[in-house]
Design a protein around this nucleic acid. Structure first.
Lengths: 124, 124
DNA sequence: TATGCTGGTATACTCTGTTATACTGGTTAC
DNA sequence: GTAACCAGTATAACAGAGTATACCAGCATA
């Protein structure tokens, strides 16, 4: 029982005050990119897809509605820019902002994990 | 119009077949660690929290119920190990498996992003 | 003896992310 | 002229993630 307390103080000493800050940072990030679709959309945009139907086709399982909603929300949050070229036929293009590109490392890590995971499953 | 087609074939040529594989890997990862709580829980465990109430206290906003559910699910998926020490008082400890530690890089990147984001907001 | 800690469970409810299906108005290709 | 593509919108419904609140048995502390 006392051993637990001693252990606890050691932890507090060795990891000063940033613990709480890091959980918050983590939770903030989850809040911004949470859900099933935002990261795949960002990924698709970063891969050069600009047009609605192209993005839609590049993400398995997404529906028109979800893509539409997410793009709107992401535009409102300055993650995505929507450009309209009025020459007929009207051309609408979506691009990521620099701010949005800052998710690159997270996406790369997640792709890496997913690949490793598939490989692991395959080997069982 | 034709310009678009030409551009498209260039993309296909320069980025061979892995595009589809990467989206899938990304979606797999999102599937495994999706939701509001799994990553914060893994983070807490990696930070040395082992006991139910300690984990609970370390994650702002989580409820007993959600923690209980998530821990069970993660135990079922071999992400977490539950150990019971029967000497009175009974001591129950949760620890991450090695497999679970493989999320480390993702979590670090997300913490990094969250911190940068706060900093950016602060500077506005 | 009362209060509080531990490790949870039970019940009920909300809410919103997500799905399904259909449809629209304009443009272009055959 | 009709079939197909573009960029979406409309409507309805569902499932399950998440919340709120209360409660439990066992042990410890004062």
């Amino acid at each position: 029982m006392d051993q637990i307390r001693i252990q606890k103080s050691k932890e507090i000493l060795s990891q000063p005050r940033n613990q709480k800050e890091e959980v918050q940072a983590l939770q903030d990030t989850i809040y911004v990119i949470g859900g099933k679709w935002k990261l795949p959309i960002i990924n698709s945009l970063c891969n050069g897809n600009k047009r609605f139907r192209d993005i839609e086709r590049s993400i398995p399982g997404i529906t028109t509605r979800m893509l539409s909603r997410e793009l709107k929300e992401m535009e409102a949050n300055s993650l995505v820019k929507r450009t309209v070229t009025p020459e007929t036929p009207v051309l609408i293009e979506y691009t990521v902002t620099d701010y949005c590109r800052s998710f690159g490392d997270i996406i790369l890590e997640m792709i890496k994990w997913g690949k490793q995971h598939r490989e692991m499953i395959r080997k069982l």
